[in-house]
Design a protein around this nucleic acid. Sequence first.
DNA 1: TGTTACCCATAGACATGGTCTATATCTCCT
DNA 2: AGGAGATATAGACCATGTCTATGGGTAACA
Lengths: 294, 294
Amino acid sequence: MSMGNNYELYKVFYWAAKTGSLTQAAKALYLTQPSVSHAIKQLEESFGVSLFYRNSKGVELTQEGMVLYSYIEQSQILITLAEEKMAALKNLDSGELRIGGSDSLFKHYVLPYLEQFHERHPGVKLHLNHGTTPEVITFLKEGRIDLGVVRMPIVDPQLQVTESFQLQDCFVAGSRYAELKNEVLTLDALLQYPIILFSRNSRARMTITEVFHNYGYSIKPEIEVGSVDLLIEFARRGLGISYVTREFVSKELEEGSLFEVSLDIPLPPSHVGLLTMRNMPLSSAAHAFIGLVK
Amino acid sequence: MSMGNNYELYKVFYWAAKTGSLTQAAKALYLTQPSVSHAIKQLEESFGVSLFYRNSKGVELTQEGMVLYSYIEQSQILITLAEEKMAALKNLDSGELRIGGSDSLFKHYVLPYLEQFHERHPGVKLHLNHGTTPEVITFLKEGRIDLGVVRMPIVDPQLQVTESFQLQDCFVAGSRYAELKNEVLTLDALLQYPIILFSRNSRARMTITEVFHNYGYSIKPEIEVGSVDLLIEFARRGLGISYVTREFVSKELEEGSLFEVSLDIPLPPSHVGLLTMRNMPLSSAAHAFIGLVK
DNA sequence: TGTTACCCATAGACATGGTCTATATCTCCT
DNA sequence: AGGAGATATAGACCATGTCTATGGGTAACA
């Protein structure tokens, strides 16, 4: 059964042995010499052996004391390392940040924040796990990521949602359809053109489908793709009109390789949110990252 | 500042992490659950990070908690091993006993006690360092042995002397001098025979020299030897009359290969004493051995 | 949808025991 | 002989670790 010493006594013993002096140990520990003397005595009495020889110069380990020290020294060093490591984690000189989300959000939305974060805390390792929104939620619940970056809305009582950014989806076309540049199309008119949409299970796809449905139309894509890059590329090559997040094609809109097709109805904005587990403590790194984004 | 956590908290953390439950940790440590809860909270606050996720089944380490645990686990295991080792030292299931003395005392006097001690405490390693009395005293003061076994008297304020046994030195001869068997010799008569003595620096030699001197004689050996075995062997072969400790030749006296030469004056007994350092704590093993001898 | 039975968190009271000051004792050194 | 510096001891105090009592949350089950 437990010999039940207060482990604090080992700290005192360690310093007394290390410095060879109760007085020095006391200084190192910000205690008084009698306190140290008392602590050592407690240890000796609990073990029933003497740990130190006392002489006029200080103290010296006995055989038994050396045996004890051989164990305790390592133990104390480990604790010191642990405390240093924890301080490093807190200061974000160390640790890791694990984010889940879609590739397109990483590329167009998360990346600038990540750069900033990495510059500020180069010791923190970054892990990006890409997946669909349900997958990201699963990752979160399994504890494999600290936070997720996904499109809103998300309704899940276990999750804490921080809406952080608004994106505007729109239809864009390339020079093949230049005649539409200054027009304002009705939905009916738009549907006369080949439409390129993201794959069926994406949130953007569901959103636009619902918009058309609300106005009594049904939108059926000519082409279906699985990445934002393809959505852009196909539109540039004139294969159709792509439904895409405006912020993700800002470069193409600027340089004129794509233009936005105006509609006579407003398209709903979409929101990007940061997902974390509700009622679960955040790692320092995740906390700092969220603070950065907000 | 001081990250100065009470190391006792790490013990609590260790058990909480190990059992995955504050309640279980409390039972293991003979504490109540609120105490453990409080201890963990202290650690978390001191580090500024969360160490556990709390759920309805118990607790689970966070990333930061796992990092801390990776250090603390080893540390705690070492402390446990240290406590077990110290208990073993105390119980004499372990440790060592270092004795200094002369070969003859080891062989004829210490050995039976050592056998008994070893039988009772087989885990204790035995170290025998042989040397002359001054060497033994030096060993003691240098801390190379726990106790010395030497002839009395010893006067040294640093040493603690425990007289433990009385030996009687005497003159013995072999069959070559059978005519002396039933005689009682005067010192003068004895000196007509060749005498064999131990080497000049031995205590026995000094003692007998002084005895003869007190009676107005001077004893000069024919042969001088460096071991008790040779003293005995030479006497048996009739090379002279040996001055030897009676207890060391009890076998030869019994079997008749040697007989004691009676003198008309009493020879002073010599005393064997156990030497330890005064004002220095004894190891458990040394303490037990001295108790055995007394 | 109660009920039960586990968890952990919190609040507040209490007493243990760790720490302090003051002093004694010892040894070494000058 | 005296001073410097080490550890040991005694006794007082109060910080803090521990307890009891209680609250809230979740999972399992009827």
